[in-house]
Computed example of a mutant assay.
Amino acid sequence: MARVWNTPVFILATVYFIVDGVFSHVTQPVTVWIAKKKIFEGTRLWIVSLRPYPSLALFAVPVIILEPAKPLAGYLIGTGHFFAGAVIFIAAEVLKLTLVEQLFQLNREKLLSIPAFAWGYQYWRRMMDAVQSMEVWRASRRLAANAAYLVRIRWLQFKHAQRSHPFRFARSEPNVRRRHAVRHHN
């Protein structure tokens, strides 16, 4: 009977790790941006000064607080509140991953000095390596990179066109109405 559950559990775990991996890829620039802010320097120094087990407790706080948002988001989506569920899921996931990534980077050595954490991290790392070695993962990463490149190129083209023709995009509403009014009277 246990083998019956292996495939669905593996599929769910794989989907979970893929979603986490995609969101982790998205939150990486936010994490780097936060790390560069001087306003967080005092907090960063305090976090780094913590011993291993208080570091673990602090590391667990965003997970414990924000992880329950996923079932809530699923419930909202399932009951027809797609937008609210999607916003809750995305916001909670981005916040959680940003905070967890930052806390892990600050206290990596201390956290890995805890045997149970080191074991769990190694297990998670093996799962992520397995997922990232899948062709579907590599294809989705290529697709996401191509989409990001396309959006960046289009945005730069738009900004260039706006600088070249600043008045072309700034038509006032009254002139448009007058033109339409003249057409209707003729």
Rank of each mutant, 00 (worst) to 15 (best):
residue 31 T to A: 04
residue 175 N to L: 11
residue 44 R to P: 05
residue 180 H to S: 11
residue 139 A to R: 08
residue 25 H to P: 09
residue 178 R to L: 12
residue 16 Y to S: 12
residue 31 T to Q: 03
residue 70 K to Y: 06
residue 132 Q to M: 08
residue 156 L to W: 14
residue 100 V to A: 15
residue 90 I to D: 07
residue 66 L to V: 02
residue 145 A to L: 07
residue 89 F to T: 03
residue 167 F to Y: 11
residue 70 K to N: 04
residue 162 Q to C: 04
residue 74 G to S: 06
residue 15 V to I: 12
residue 132 Q to R: 07
residue 88 I to G: 03
residue 33 W to V: 11
residue 105 Q to G: 01
residue 75 Y to C: 03
residue 160 H to K: 11
residue 26 V to D: 01
residue 119 W to D: 13
residue 73 A to M: 00
residue 114 I to S: 12
residue 42 G to F: 13
residue 132 Q to H: 07
residue 111 L to H: 00
residue 31 T to F: 01
residue 157 Q to L: 04
residue 134 M to H: 08
residue 114 I to T: 12
residue 159 K to N: 09
residue 95 L to W: 02
residue 5 W to Q: 07
residue 72 L to H: 09
residue 94 V to H: 00
residue 70 K to H: 08
residue 146 N to Y: 09
residue 102 Q to V: 12
residue 152 R to G: 02
residue 36 K to A: 13
residue 33 W to C: 07
residue 5 W to Y: 08
residue 151 V to E: 01
residue 169 F to D: 14
residue 29 P to F: 08
residue 89 F to Q: 08
residue 48 V to W: 00
residue 115 P to K: 03
residue 157 Q to C: 05
residue 110 K to M: 07
residue 128 M to F: 13
residue 77 I to M: 15
residue 141 R to Q: 13
residue 94 V to F: 05
residue 132 Q to E: 10
residue 116 A to F: 14
residue 78 G to Y: 05
residue 179 R to N: 13
residue 64 I to G: 05
residue 115 P to W: 00
residue 51 R to I: 01
residue 80 G to R: 09
residue 163 R to H: 12
residue 159 K to L: 15
residue 161 A to N: 13
residue 148 A to L: 10
residue 53 Y to V: 11
residue 43 T to M: 15
residue 11 I to W: 09
residue 23 F to I: 11
residue 107 N to I: 05
residue 174 P to V: 01
residue 176 V to L: 11
residue 143 L to G: 07
residue 31 T to E: 04
residue 146 N to P: 00
residue 3 R to G: 06
residue 132 Q to K: 08
residue 30 V to I: 15
residue 139 A to C: 07
residue 65 I to P: 06
residue 150 L to K: 09
residue 73 A to H: 02
residue 89 F to C: 10
residue 182 V to Q: 00
residue 87 V to F: 05
residue 158 F to H: 03
residue 79 T to L: 02
residue 136 V to H: 06
residue 61 V to A: 05
residue 42 G to V: 13
residue 55 S to F: 06
residue 112 L to Q: 10
residue 30 V to A: 15
